[in-house]
């Protein structure tokens, strides 16, 4: 446990000391501000059939920055260790591979969650400054954040696996990007022109459709199946990361 916390703290410090972090933080602040405005704007003209929350978290403005964000924050995690050979120092101290993987994963997750704080501020400001009571459905916002965190866990785990596969950060980043986009598009297969899929296949694709999950959760419809999906995918990916790292140090 000490090893886990020690590495977690070191990684978090590393995040806030790297210039990439500030690029990412500014990018996310701008994106969130803009998408919040875009979601607000239609409401000026009159009632809409989507709530403010739903409007903000379901468009291209929500998804496309995420596709870029995850590779940026995860590509360094294990690639750099492998390139510099520093895993040899880490793993000859009394530290388990699982400690290393989990610590890096959680450090990244914490950073990711911090990136989303501006949005919460936007909603609070809307109530405080706008003086509007019940400007947005709180449960919907909580639901949306639930998916943001769960989706973040899975995608960060994808990034961990990709960066354990290559000592080259760029390769790891591109791989993460490709995997995340592919997973997103797969979820949209049933809705596309490819008709005639059997019901089971349909259901499977629906099960991994993050966009659909987000639409439901951000309208307050909380379901346990997506939660189980994200958590189990995360666990599997992290175990795979551990195995890959061990295999690569043992074989190479």
């Amino acid at each position: 446990m000490t090893a886990f916390i020690t590495i977690l703290r070191k990684e978090l410090r590393g995040f806030f000391l790297s210039p990439v972090a500030y690029v990412v933080i500014s990018m996310m602040m701008i994106v969130q501000g803009v998408s919040f405005l875009f979601a607000l704007k239609p409401l000026l003209t009159g009632p809409q059939n989507m709530s403010l929350v739903q409007a903000q978290f379901t468009g291209a403005l929500f998804w496309i920055p995420l596709f870029v964000l995850f590779p940026l924050i995860t590509m360094r995690l294990f690639s750099e260790e492998q390139k510099m050979g520093t895993l040899e120092m880490l793993l000859t101290a009394p530290v388990r591979m699982a400690d290393v993987v989990l610590a890096k994963f959680f450090a990244c997750l914490i950073f990711y969650i911090i990136l989303w704080l501006p949005t919460i501020l936007h909603y609070l400001l809307l109530e405080w400054i706008g003086g509007i009571e019940h400007a947005f459905p709180v449960y919907a916002l909580a639901g949306a954040f639930c998916i943001i965190v769960l989706l973040g866990m899975m995608n960060i785990a994808i990034g961990c696996l990709a960066s354990s596969l290559s000592a080259n950060q760029i390769v790891a980043g591109v791989l993460t990007f490709a995997l995340i986009v592919m997973l997103f598009l797969l979820g949209h297969l049933p809705g596309s022109s490819l008709g005639g899929l059997s019901e089971i296949v349909q259901e499977f694709f629906e099960h991994i459709n993050s966009d659909l999950h987000m639409q439901r959760f951000s309208s307050g419809m909380v379901d346990t199946r997506p939660i189980a999906y994200y958590l189990s995918a995360t666990a599997v990916l992290l175990v795979a990361t551990t195995f890959t790292l061990n295999a690569r140090r043992w074989k190479n």
Binding site: T6, L17, M84, E88, M89, A93
Partner: peptide, 25 residues
């Protein structure tokens, strides 16, 4: 002490040694 002494090159000396000492309990 490994062959090419891999270190976290973006840390400071004391900070690094603190990190290592803590890892070692």
């Amino acid at each position: 002490m490994p062959e090419n002494v891999p270190l976290y090159t973006d840390m400071r000396v004391k900070e690094y040694l603190h990190f290592r000492a803590r890892l070692k309990g």
